[in-house]
């Protein structure tokens, strides 16, 4: 059940000191994106009491309308490693509040594209727009400054450190000359609670004691801790059992429902269809199609992945 404390906690936390950056998820809980409060009366309908509806005296909150402009927008991206051409004229967009699945065969260029987005590889030519404005991303630091976080397949967690230390690794909060341990612990707990994570007991547990699913959760929490706008997940469910996969998928969905743009790389068509709003299919270094998941079938996506074309969709030959 949902936890009491949604009112006092976040506001108090924001005031606890100069925040590193405002908290992405908490902003959604407190601000305009808070789901609309309704008129009373829904419960009585089950009992069939017909109460007159009144409008005076009770304000309604409208949920925030999601914008339709992509937060991340790439056009005409080319990338070669020496003489090996890896990406050719790739367009890719990610939208706030949506999960965009990036699919493709092995070697289709998924990971390279993600590394270009994250500033790990510079691309040769093409246009990189963030929040509608041209952006230059020459290093992972630039990407992080824009609010792009990548959760790599290997998760890049330090086994010998605890959850809080991992979440803040390299970006520790300070209070004077000391580390602000209490503040970081609080923020870590708040972030995990904001993600409705119930599977993790103490935030002072070492990573080495956590299961695969819990580690994935920590890696995802680290990505959303920094007021990020785009979170890219590379095969988050690849090494997990079915129960943990389900939990990670639901977590991915919640991230997007809180307003983040999520990019999900996956080989598993079920996972893709379970959570995605859009599917971008790469075929041999080219973007075969970017489609809305509600408009396509499993078969079409498989054809786009394996042949680059499916009926009207896909690459023109």
């Amino acid at each position: 059940m949902n936890l009491p404390g949604g009112g006092g906690g976040p506001a108090a936390r924001a005031a606890a000191g100069p925040p590193v950056r405002p908290h992405a998820l908490e902003a959604g809980r407190n601000g305009a994106a808070t789901p609309g409060y309704r008129h009373p009366g829904a419960a009585d309908t089950l009992g069939g009491h017909d109460r007159p509806s009144r409008d005076g005296g009770v304000a309604r909150w409208e949920p925030l309308r999601m914008s339709v402009t992509p937060v991340l927008d790439l056009r005409g991206i080319d990338k070669s490693f020496g003489s090996v051409k890896v990406l050719h004229d790739v367009a890719f967009s990610a939208y706030p509040g949506e999960v965009t699945a990036l699919v493709g065969d092995n070697g289709a260029g998924k990971t390279t594209l993600v590394k270009c987005i994250g500033g790990i590889h510079p691309f040769d030519s093409g246009e990189y727009r963030f929040d509608g404005a041209p952006a230059r991303v020459g290093s992972p630091r630039d990407a992080a400054a824009l609010g792009i976080e990548i959760v790599h397949q290997d998760l890049a967690l330090c086994e010998n450190l605890d959850i809080v230390q991992n979440l803040f690794l390299g970006r520790e909060r300070r209070r004077g000359l000391m580390l602000d341990e209490a503040g970081m612990e609080e923020l870590a707990r708040g972030t995990l609670a904001g993600l409705s994570v119930r599977t993790i007991g103490s935030v002072r547990q070492r990573i080495s004691t956590l299961s695969g699913g819990q580690r994935q959760t920590v890696a995802i929490a680290r990505a959303v801790l920094w007021d990020s706008k785009v979170v890219i997940l590379d095969e988050p469910a690849a090494a997990l059992g079915v129960v943990q996969t389900q939990q990670v998928l639901e977590l991915v969905r919640r991230l997007a429902d809180k307003g983040l743009a999520v990019v999900l790389i996956s080989h598993n068509m079920n996972d893709v269809f379970a959570v995605s709003d859009r599917i971008a299919a790469l075929y041999l270094g080219r973007m075969a199609a970017q489609v809305r998941t509600s408009d396509v079938t499993h078969r079409q996506i498989v054809e786009l992945i394996t042949a680059g074309v499916s009926g009207d969709l896909g690459l023109r030959r």
């Binding site: 079920n270 269809f273 379970a274 408009d295």
Partner: peptide, 16 residues
């Protein structure tokens, strides 16, 4: 819940 997460590709394809 389990059935949907385990067969989402079919559910959504038929829906489409």
């Amino acid at each position: 819940r389990d059935i949907y997460l385990g067969s989402a590709a079919q559910v959504r394809s038929v829906l489409a």
